[in-house]
Structures are given as structure tokens and as C-alpha cells.
Amino acid sequence: MDKNKVGNQLKALRKAKNMTTQELADKVNISQSYISRFENGRAIPDIEMLESILTALDTDLATFFSSELEEMPDDLIQLLNTVKTLSPEARRKLNEFLLLVKKE
């Protein structure tokens, strides 16, 4: 994965969480400009920093490097992040609702 892909993916995840670069930087205890450098492909985080950023974005290395995430639109990433926070019962109800919507 090249610098631009890493940066684009980090930016998509951050935006899907409705976070600013400053909010993400505050969560990871680094400067906003450092986050910006990653997102703009001017730098690539080391594995520990990437893991810290991903933790702040409620995801992990395995998900980040999966090919599915690269192709996912921002709104779908946001939906998946929201679904992850639901209880099993709420996820079941949401799935039932979505299946009804799909039939229409």
C-alpha cells in the first residue's frame, strides 16, 4: 500500500466518523499537521502510530488493510461504524428493516 492509498483511506475513515484532523490529532496526542501530512501522502505513519490512529477511528489494522475497505464509499464506512456500536438486538432489528426496504 503506497502513501497516497494510506492517506486517502485514513481521510475517508476520519470523515466517516465526522472528525476533524484536529479532533483526531487530539485523540492520538499528535499535532494536526502530522495527521494532515499522512492524509495528503507527504508522510506515512509507522505501524505503532497507524495502530493508534486506527484505534482512535474505532477500527484495526486488519480492517484497514482489507481490500474491501479501499473500495468502500464514505457513507458505507460511516454506516458500518454506526452498526458496530449497536447491541445485537438492535443490529437484528436494523437488518430486518433493511431487508424490508430492499424488497420495495
Rank of each mutant, 00 (worst) to 15 (best):
M19N: 00
I53V: 07
L80G: 09
P73Q: 06
D46W: 05
A12L: 04
A43N: 13
V101N: 07
K3R: 15
T82F: 10
A62F: 13
K102G: 04
K5W: 04
K84S: 10
I47T: 08
D75F: 09
L57E: 04
L24A: 02
T20V: 02
N18T: 03
I44M: 05
K103H: 12
G41T: 04
I30H: 14
D46N: 12
R91H: 12
D74C: 07
F38K: 03
L54W: 00
T59N: 10
L94G: 09
L69P: 00
G7K: 04
N29R: 12
E71Y: 08
L10I: 10
L54T: 03
L13M: 08
K27D: 01
K27A: 08
T20F: 02
L100V: 15
A62E: 15
E104M: 14
T85W: 04
S33W: 10
V83Y: 13
A43E: 12
K17V: 00
S33V: 12
D60A: 12
T55H: 03
K84L: 08
S36L: 13
D58I: 07
Q32G: 03
K3M: 12
I47P: 08
S33F: 14
D74M: 13
R42P: 00
K17E: 05
A90P: 01
V6D: 06
L50M: 00
L61C: 09
T82M: 09
A12V: 00
K11L: 05
M19C: 00
M1V: 14
K11N: 02
P45K: 05
E48L: 12
T82Y: 13
K84F: 03
S87M: 14
R91W: 12
F64M: 04
A56V: 05
T21V: 03
G7N: 06
D75I: 07
R14W: 02
E51R: 08
F64Q: 05
K27R: 10
K93I: 08
T21W: 00
A12E: 01
A25T: 03
L57M: 06
K11F: 01
Y34S: 09
D2K: 11
Q32T: 13
T85D: 11
V83Q: 09
L69Q: 03
K93N: 11
R14V: 07
D75C: 04
L79Y: 07
T82S: 09
L54Y: 00
L99C: 09
R42M: 08
E51A: 11
L69S: 02
D74S: 09
T21S: 04
P73I: 06
L76Q: 10
N29C: 09
E70T: 13
T82P: 00
T21K: 06
A56D: 02
N29F: 10
L80I: 07
V6I: 15
T59K: 08
N40G: 04
K102S: 10
E71N: 12
D26Q: 12
I77W: 06
T59D: 07
V83M: 13
Q9C: 03
K3L: 11
S31Q: 14
R42Y: 07
R37L: 05
I77Q: 04
